[in-house]
């Protein structure tokens, strides 16, 4: 659905996006992560044909940016980082304007559908300026969806929202994902990316890494398994460390934490040697690194 090759954007002496090459598949939620000023918004603007790249190419929904810009804008939806509304106009009229600009056939029906879906139907005649931040964000999401775009670009959709509103927006993104829409999600919220995204790309002017959150954890930190024992002693640690597939062993209280590449295959072996050595194995669990740890490791080393 989205394919870029060496996509580059330079503003005067500033290189905003450097040779970005990525592919986002149909129905995928792709998280685009990076610090402020990394070039995420510039990338979204290029992919939605708002600005032209300096170099490189991109195909969005089968259309080439720079050549088929109107077609791209017609088939993608965008929630901008600061999605302004016409505050003095009603919520319904705000959406009707966009339905007309997107040439939506059943404009009235689409406006009603999304106002109801996002819980704004009862407030449809109220001026958008009277809405809370969360309601405005929902209205902006409705605006981005009116023309049923196949690809949706969401630039920081939950930034500056209270936890309840953010939760609602996240749930709605989950719904969109179930509908099979392709979503390009720029976010600072790494828990959100972890929860919603099939794959993530960490970006700082250029793409640092791109993979599923689980594989990124594994690549950077390996997989860690925690063995809760009745008691830990040096002998047990030595036995586990001597196993050929163990990369690292640590202890904490009555736990042995091991790093290995393939826990699914080797956990039974570890349990067997521990039991044979007389250890009382109480629980076995996976120690998950947060996506935040992955992100920080990547960005700080970039």
């Amino acid at each position: 659905m989205i394919q870029t090759e060496n996509l580059t954007k330079r503003f005067a002496n500033t290189l905003a996006v450097d040779r970005l090459t990525l592919q986002v598949n149909e129905g995928e939620v792709f998280g685009f992560l990076g610090p402020n000023g990394a070039g995420k918004t510039t990338t979204v603007r290029m992919l939605t044909s708002l600005i032209a790249p300096t170099n490189g190419t991109a195909i969005v929904n089968g259309f080439q940016i720079g050549k088929e810009d109107i077609e791209i804008r017609r088939t993608v939806g965008i929630l901008t980082e600061t999605p302004g509304m016409y505050d003095s106009l009603s919520a319904e009229y705000n959406l009707r304007i966009y339905a007309s600009l997107y040439e939506v056939e059943d404009a009235k029906g689409q406006v009603e559908k999304y106002l109801r879906m996002l819980g704004l139907w009862e407030r449809r005649f109220d001026e958008a300026g009277t809405f809370s931040k969360g309601m405005k964000q929902k209205l902006a999401i409705a605006r981005a969806l009116l023309h049923e775009p196949k690809i949706l670009f969401l630039d920081e959709p939950t930034a500056a929202l209270d936890p309840e509103s953010a939760h609602l927006v996240r749930d709605f993104i989950e719904e969109l994902r179930k509908e099979g829409r392709t979503i390009f999600l720029c976010t600072h919220n790494l828990d959100e990316a972890d929860r919603l995204c099939d794959r993530v790309g960490v970006f700082k002017t250029h793409l640092l890494v791109m993979d599923t959150p689980a594989r990124l954890r594994s690549k950077l930190f390996g997989k860690k398994v925690v063995f809760h024992l009745r008691a830990v002693n040096e002998e047990l640690v030595k036995i586990v460390s001597s196993l050929p597939f163990i990369r690292e062993t640590k202890t904490m209280d009555n736990k042995i934490i091991v790093t290995l590449d393939n826990p699914e295959e080797h956990n039974p072996d570890i349990i067997r040697v521990l039991v044979e050595a007389g250890a009382g194995v109480q629980f076995v669990g996976e120690l998950r690194h947060s996506l935040e740890e992955v992100y920080l490791q990547l960005v700080q080393n970039a």
């Binding site: 077609e71 999605p83 997107y102 902006a140």
Partner: peptide
Amino acid sequence: THSLEPLLATPIT
């Protein structure tokens, strides 16, 4: 009011 960017993102020339 930051409403220009969403407007520019529509298929209007």
